[in-house]
Simulated assay, not measured.
Amino acid sequence: MALRRHTYQVLPTRRMQGTGVPWPHDVRVALPPSYEHGDRSYPVLWVTDASLSFPLTVGLMNWLHTVQEVAELIVIGVGAPDESDPAEFGARRTHDFYAMPRWVNAGLGGTHMEALSSERPTGGGGADAMLSFLVDEVRQRLASEFRFDDDHGLVGFSGGGHFVGFALLSRPAAFGRYLASSPALSGCEDLLFTLEADYAATHDDLVAKVFLGAGEAELTDPFVVAADIVGSMTRMAQLLRLRDYPSLELTARLYPRQTHGSALSYALNEGLRTLYPFTDSWA
């Protein structure tokens, strides 16, 4: 197989202020290698935590495109500016990714998580506004500038994985593909499980491709155990599988020996290849 030497073109970071969002967000755009050589449109992958996950995602896309395992995509990273104060950056992530002020999970795990956190961020409550900002403002603005097709995916890690689950269950038509790495799905006192039950009560199908991934070693870190990463991901995968939605394509993975930090690269690698497999039509 001949390797492709072209790489994604990363454009200068821009900053946008969303309606109802208390601070501006950095927006980063990476265009696929063939973008400047034609006029076709591309699927769009939206990556939360622009300063953290976007560079890793683009790096993987460069390689996976080179070896012809993943389709070409427009990759867009959106996230709170990379503040010098880690506590402030963490507080902004918590606000953006959780829909309720009490962002921890209910019960024993949440109590332990609060007790173990030495830099406890401010509460959540901004997920609705953040989702609207992504879909109704950033997407609309960038669609007038870049060649989007009507195929959007969303990626999130940890709290961002919770946000991916929130988007899937509160506004499922906004994206068609969802990748959640080490997702804290039981946050906000099991809100996502309430949303899942409400959705199931009124729908007999869920049109989505969903990839969930976490690390087996996330069961050894006290804080991560308290956050219920592995348990909540497994519980959500079981629930969605048992719903037997005909249009849902669900993949769940638990990576041996991988931690809360290291599992992300594994989930991104397999998740991208699962959700966006290379085909001749997407070459």
Rank of each mutant, 00 (worst) to 15 (best):
T194I: 09
G156F: 00
T194W: 03
L168Y: 10
T194G: 09
R171N: 11
D151P: 00
L191Q: 03
F157T: 10
L168A: 14
H162W: 14
S182W: 07
F175V: 08
G153D: 04
F175I: 07
F166M: 10
L154K: 07
E189T: 11
G187I: 10
G156W: 00
D198V: 07
A180M: 10
D151T: 15
L192R: 04
P172E: 01
F175M: 09
L179S: 03
D204W: 11
P172F: 03
C188R: 13
S186Q: 06
S181V: 09
C188H: 13
D190H: 08
F166Q: 11
L179F: 01
R171T: 12
T202C: 02
G187R: 11
A174R: 04
H152W: 15
G165E: 09
G160C: 14
A201N: 12
S158K: 04
A184R: 01
L169K: 08
Y199F: 15
D204E: 15
V155D: 00
V155L: 14
Y178W: 05
Y178C: 02
L192G: 03
G176F: 00
F157S: 12
A167Y: 05
L169D: 02
H203T: 14
F175C: 08
L179K: 01
F175Y: 15
S186N: 12
F163E: 06
L191P: 04
G176Y: 02
E189A: 13
D190P: 03
S186W: 00
A180Y: 08
Y178Q: 02
D151M: 08
L195T: 06
C188E: 15
D198H: 14
D198S: 14
S186A: 15
D151A: 12
H152P: 12
D190I: 06
S170F: 00
P183V: 08
A197W: 09
S158G: 10
G187A: 15
S170G: 06
L179E: 00
D198Q: 15
G160A: 15
F193T: 12
G159L: 02
G159F: 02
G176E: 07
T202N: 07
L185N: 04
L179W: 01
E196A: 13
